[in-house]
Nucleic acid binder design. Structure first.
Lengths: 342, 342
DNA sequence: ATGAAAGCGCTAACAG
DNA sequence: CTGTTAGCGCTTTCAT
């Protein structure tokens, strides 16, 4: 096989040309005749030579690393959530296509002592993707260091940071419209109280759909909770005490719906016979629930690819970059938590 | 703040010493007097200088990258499974401690056209962690390239590859013993038919526990399935047609148990009143099922840290490396799918 | 104990 | 169109 690692000079010698010629060919740049180009290519292949990326890194002052970070100081533990799993897979496949590594990064402590800061200082990262949120302090530091970044699944309507977002108001409206179409009249809403902007969008989608279909809305049917069983169990308790009994519950996220279903099951309420449940996200656990959850699909994978694309535009210094890209919402995935009451 | 990037020479000049002295200090090696050392350190700090990792990469011929790979040709899509999520988090935190990047890598096609091979060729990886399995072909290629690797959660008893493993026979025995202790007499077993070695270990654990407690075993109560709803639904069908009715089902993995619970629910069988369910893994969805699943904990996080540790030993060329490290199994996490029948 | 000098393998002016 | 030259920022002999 391969003996010692070959260098660009070895190839140059074998091809009877200079190293620069080889470099030009390697990078597919103009500057050599077609004849020499194909000759050099032949030599490269027959020796299956691959340039050492480390030297390119040094001279180009690039790392070819994209960091994907879950900032635990800025929200939930995003890596724990199947939602971002899909987004990461999307980013991963696009990174492979453009020749970058996708490097995982958790921020658990202060930014100052994070591996992200270290990577920035050491030129060990060319761009970073934040899951869901970025703290202003971190954004400032990165801006100062001229480090491109993008927030994936940003809920801030106008943070001004480059972001990939999704119209959760629209997705919510789709879910609620579906509940209306299937004959539900008293549709409850459980929003996420810990992410304000997200609460607002989903609530607006919910209200919008009700209004559009002329369904009267009842304030006691809208509530909010954090994304954990206890909080959602309490929310269900409040809803069930309402004068108007809900015949359906719309949850702003799959995980919330799953906790809601646990709560309903404990109370002996059958889904969907007594209460229908519908949500937004389509994360893996929603296929594993009993019964499987009807939900609105979100193109999480696409968010990942789009984030990498935006980063590439920034790294390559393109102009006219669209710094806020919205991914269209998906359709209702009809499973078994919604019954037709009409 | 920082003007232009400083180099080791700038620091040397400021400190009135040579670049080599600074290098020695940066790497904490002997060769300078304590006086100059602390003086240089002071200069470094006050300018908050950080060496450029790219130049170290070049001269040391290292990438400081650890790849963590899910080979879709060698098994299931490991990144989809919450099991490996936890292992990855463990690997991530240890990587941070030792100054390596953790780089995600999917193998969807042939190894020859994978980003892993590319990384190996380009000196863009120093060690690789395989999730669950490695194909012999890939192991050969890596060995030839002198690239350290370790298989995390290897099920092969004696593959000879460096690996982190877990005693699933022991974990299974714990689960089954717990079912016995809670008064179950007809305990069914659903093993994973697609990973032979895993099937064997869990089956042995199951049988061992039955024998140890003098419970007669009934062949018609042991079956196997693939990890998807259809296959497990069929397995449940077979079990329910058995002459001896099971009062509990032990599943070799949480995800299998979750599908089993879906199947049982569809058949109107209540858990745990009619049939108890117990499994092994403790992945996130097991907390989200109705009712929450009783299962044996596996220290997935620890598997990740241990994998990185082993890789570091290999990279640093230690001798007397233990190439097969078993992580002790955890305890039964008592949740709500097992009822006391005694 | 310290510094000078020679690269690591590549790219990018600049000449010819 | 092609080759020569000079580095990128660090580590590492080898003199002093």
């Amino acid at each position: 096989m391969q003996k010692e690692r070959m260098t660009i000079h070895d190839i140059a010698k074998l091809a009877g040309v200079s190293a620069s010629a080889v470099s030009i060919v390697l990078n597919d740049r103009p500057g050599v005749s077609d004849a020499t180009r194909s000759h050099i290519k032949k030599i490269i292949r027959s020796n299956n030579y691959t340039p050492n990326l480390n030297s390119r890194k040094l001279i180009l002052n690039k790392s070819f690393n994209i960091f994907i970070v879950a900032d635990h100081r800025a929200g939930e533990g995003a890596f724990d959530d199947m939602f971002y799993n899909s987004a990461i897979m999307g980013a991963l496949s696009r990174c492979g296509e453009v020749g970058y590594n996708l490097v995982l990064c958790d921020i658990l402590q202060e930014y100052a002592s994070s591996t992200l800061k270290q990577a920035v200082d050491q030129h060990n990262v060319d761009g970073v993707i934040f899951l869901q949120n970025i703290r202003a302090e971190v954004a400032e530091e990165l801006t100062r260091a001229a480090m491109p970044f993008v927030v994936l699944d940003s809920h801030k309507q106008k943070s001004g940071y480059p972001c990939i977002c999704c119209d959760y108001a629209d997705a919510s409206a789709k879910a609620v419209s579906y509940l209306i179409k299937t004959g539900h009249k008293q549709i409850a809403f459980i929003g996420n109280s810990s992410v304000h902007e997200f609460y607002i969008s989903t609530f607006n989608g919910y209200m919008g759909a009700l209004e559009k279909h002329g369904i009267p809305c009842c304030p006691s049917l809208a509530t909010s909770a954090e994304v954990n069983f206890e909080s959602i169990n309490q929310a269900i308790g409040r809803l069930l005490k309402s004068e108007i009994k809900p015949d359906a519950i719309f949850c702003a996220a799959d995980l919330m719906a799953i906790f809601a279903m646990q709560s309903l099951a404990m109370r002996g309420i059958s889904i969907p016979e007594q209460i229908s449940v519908c949500a937004v996200d389509n994360i893996l656990p929603s296929q594993l629930s009993v019964p499987p959850l009807t939900t609105v699909d979100i193109a999480k994978n696409r968010m990942g690819t789009e984030a990498v694309d935006m980063l590439m535009d920034m790294i390559e210094g393109k102009n006219d970059i669209n710094f806020r890209r919205c991914i269209p919402t998906g359709e209702v995935l009809v499973r078994n938590t919604v019954i037709n009451r009409s």
